[in-house]
């Protein structure tokens, strides 16, 4: 691996607040291949601070690809060029000396911009609050081995449960649909015996909440699954459609 300095030109979306028009601003900076993408931005921000300029605001926290807080469209792709990789896990070795990189926020009606690259994703929480759970209060649960669940079934449920709620699926979708996010939760819970009781209501309520929040409809582009850093299978949407149809046809009563 080389440790050579890379010269990078960045074009970053700057927007002071929700009502500001915003525009792309250009910056020149240097990086090295071992840096993470966010560390490259940290270094740039330190430079901006030292010149008394406003540093770039972006969301980030765990920096190990699991909290789902980081959110940037890099060269037109949510989380950047590498498959199955969040922005915080992207490293500069995915770029080369002399590259120009465009950085924009998630763009969706349901995710209003707060500042620069930060967006408001609370719509996701409200969708979960509408039914993304199993209604079991604390206490009185039977022994965990009382209900056997096949390994294959548990593994499949895990594949859907791995969603980090980052919103890349919405950002990638031409309709800003949240079908992959909602489908992942519905599919996860419908795989388990414990999730059967509220199966119909969950599908109906979550879809209704998704519509209320202003997410668009799914028109089968599949961009969501290809942008997903956790590789949530596109089948999640098929499961959601099936669960929704099943609930509607049977009158929605659990």
């Amino acid at each position: 691996m080389s440790d050579e300095t890379m010269r990078i030109t960045l074009h970053v979306w700057r927007q002071k607040g929700p009502n500001d028009r915003g525009s792309l601003q250009s910056y020149k900076t240097e990086a090295n291949p071992h840096m993470s993408f966010l560390e490259m931005l940290d270094v740039l921000n330190e430079q901006l601070l030292s010149k008394n300029e406003d540093p770039i605001a972006f969301d980030h926290d765990c920096r190990e690809g699991i909290c789902g807080m980081c959110s940037m469209v890099i060269n037109g792709r949510p989380h950047g060029p590498r498959n199955a990789t969040t922005t915080c896990q992207l490293h500069m070795r995915s770029f080369k000396d002399g590259d120009e990189i465009y950085i924009e926020p998630w763009q969706a009606k349901a995710f209003p911009i707060i500042k620069d690259l930060m967006v408001d994703r609370s719509a996701f929480d409200r969708v979960i609050a509408s039914g993304g759970y199993i209604s079991v209060g604390t206490g009185g649960a039977p022994d965990a081995n009382a209900i056997p669940i096949g390994k294959k079934q548990a593994d499949e449920a895990f594949d859907y449960a791995a969603c980090i709620g980052c919103g890349a699926c919405v950002a990638a979708c031409p309709n800003a649909s949240a079908m992959l996010f909602v489908g992942a939760k519905v599919a996860h819970l419908s795989k388990f015996p414990q999730g059967q009781v509220e199966r119909k209501g969950r599908a109906l309520n979550m879809v209704a909440a998704m519509d209320t929040e202003g997410f668009g409809a799914c028109t089968n582009h599949g961009e969501c699954a290809s942008a997903c850093p956790k590789e949530i299978p596109l089948e999640a949407i098929m499961v959601l459609n099936r669960e929704y149809a099943r609930a509607q046809l049977s009158g929605g009563e659990d």
Binding site: Y133, A144, I147, K151, A154, Q194
Partner: peptide, 19 residues
């Protein structure tokens, strides 16, 4: 463990369905 399993936490399982 009982509480989490009942919430649908996808713990690793053996082929027989046990945790």
């Amino acid at each position: 463990i009982d509480q989490c399993a009942s919430q649908g936490v996808p713990f690793a399982r053996e082929y027989g369905g046990q945790l």
